[in-house]
Amino acid sequence: MVHLSWYLTVSAMLFCIGVFGFLTRRNIIMMLLSIELMLNSVNLNLAAMSHYMEDIRGQVLVFFIIAVAAAEAAIGLGIVVTLFRNYRSVYTEDITILKG
């Protein structure tokens, strides 16, 4: 019998791996990929909760999250492409125009 807390632990670890990746990768595209990882962990969390609470609403939310993640990935990558066109680089250390 798989306990709920195991699923939640996996989800938490995956989320933190995603955070680590977001905060430490140089390549912007890898940062975006880490974000996808975080989203996936959240999906797993929701699905597990919904299963153990015997309510379908969590999984409905997962469905919507997947849809929105797709849209977000598209737009994000579009921005990366535009950035690449203007700065000829996808590394975060080269794009610091918000520096105060």
């Binding site: 250390e93 794009i95 125009i97 105060g100």
Partner: peptide, 17 residues
């Protein structure tokens, strides 16, 4: 305070986290 604004997304992200 302005030294905090490095322009690097990762730094902002770390602070948020």
């Amino acid at each position: 305070l302005s030294k905090f604004q490095t322009g690097r997304v990762q730094h902002y992200g770390s602070v948020m986290a």
